[in-house]
Every structure is written in C-alpha cells, then in structure tokens.
Amino acid sequence: MRQILLFVSMAVIGGGLYLKLFYDVPDSQTQINFFVSWFFIIIGVGSLLVNIFWGNTGDKENRNKD
C-alpha cells in the first residue's frame, strides 16, 4: 500500500513538473497552468513527505518495546 502511494505521489509531482516546464501553454491559460502545476507539485511533495514520515515514530516505539 505504501509503495503504491509513493508511486502515485511521484507521478503527481512528475505531472506538475511537466505542466510547469514542458507543457506548451496557450497564452490565455497561463494563470490556470500556474495554479494547476504548483498544486500538483505541492500535493505531490506533501503526500510524499507524509508517506515517508507516517508511522516512523510508531515503528521505533514498537521496536523499543520489543
């Protein structure tokens, strides 16, 4: 499950970076492109970090108990 979430997060970041750097934005849509690309990047990075840190403390506590 965790690996799937990690993959999805990476894909979302990749999508955001693609829209930001490579997508040929029509003149009239630069504003929405700015929002969507950064939105993907923020959500992607956020979920990636949550994925990394989620339950880490719990694991340590469990290991300490053992």
């Binding site: 504003q31 923020i42 970090l49 840190f53 989620w54």
Partner: peptide, 25 residues
C-alpha cells in the same frame, strides 16, 4: 499520526491557500 506528519499537512494546506491567493486572489 506523529508531529511531523501534522506539521507537513498544515504546511501543505497553507501552501495551497497561498497558491490560490497568488493565482486568483
């Protein structure tokens, strides 16, 4: 949910609010 996760979630929400303000507000 540990403190780091809560901090990241708050930061993400704040970033999205800021992004919305910069984009349209």
């Amino acid at each position: 949910m540990n403190r780091k996760v809560i901090f990241i979630l708050i930061l993400t929400v704040l970033s999205i609010i800021l992004l919305t303000l910069i984009s349209f507000g």
